Amino acid sequence: MPTALPVPIQFELPEGWRAAPPDAVGVPEASFVALHPQPDARFTANVMIDGEYRPDAARLSAIAHDSVERLRQAATSVKVTSHHEIGSADAPGFTQTLAVSAVVGGVARDLVQSQVYLSILDVADPSKRAVIRLVLTATASQHSYVLSDFQDFVRTVRLDANTAS
């Protein structure tokens, strides 16, 4: 069963991408998964969203580092190829790109993962902080092709004003 996000968000998928049940694609801890319409070498590029409340003061870069360490436990190798602070003091974010070698579906794959971390403070109680993680995973050869779709997608992510408190 998909994990609910700590805060409601809204977004628009790029043309052609389709939502998929997280359980059905093997990421039950995700809140949302979308699949690219054209697989590359039998691997389907995907976007995954998850998030959690983070009442601690951990920097987004530290949270991203923890994510890399968890991925290292499941992959053959993981290398951070870039990372950047983004956003502003009021709406901080962090991005990182990873080169990942892993066995997926019994096949050794070279993948690239682009991760975006967004920190969202509760306006009524700034001690309540949610961190939303947006992840694009694609083959190394397809990543540059689908990256612009992912960037367009990230630009549409915002709090859902209809349900946010």
Rank of each mutant, 00 (worst) to 15 (best):
T44V: 14
V135I: 14
T163M: 12
D125H: 09
D50A: 07
F11H: 07
V112S: 07
V27R: 00
L134T: 02
P37W: 06
A4K: 14
A89K: 10
T44Y: 06
V25R: 00
A161H: 05
I120P: 00
A164Y: 14
T44H: 10
V131C: 01
H65M: 06
I63N: 00
N162T: 12
V27L: 03
P92K: 05
V116T: 04
Y53W: 09
P21W: 11
M48F: 04
D122V: 12
T95Q: 09
E69Q: 14
V116N: 03
A58D: 11
A24Q: 08
S82E: 14
Y145F: 10
A41G: 06
D23K: 09
Q96I: 02
A164I: 12
I86R: 11
R54G: 04
V7Q: 00
P6M: 01
G26E: 04
Q73N: 07
T97R: 13
A102Q: 15
S119L: 15
P8S: 13
I86T: 14
S61H: 12
I49Y: 03
V68F: 02
D23H: 07
D110T: 12
H84A: 15
A108T: 12
D23T: 11
D149T: 10
Q10I: 09
L121V: 07
S77Q: 10
A99G: 08
A138W: 02
A130V: 11
S61G: 07
E12Q: 14
Q38S: 11
V100L: 02
Y53I: 12
T163N: 11
A91W: 13
L111H: 01
V135T: 14
K79H: 12
V123M: 08
V27H: 00
T156K: 06
G26D: 12
P92I: 04
S114N: 10
G87D: 03
T163Y: 15
V80G: 08
P2A: 11
D40C: 10
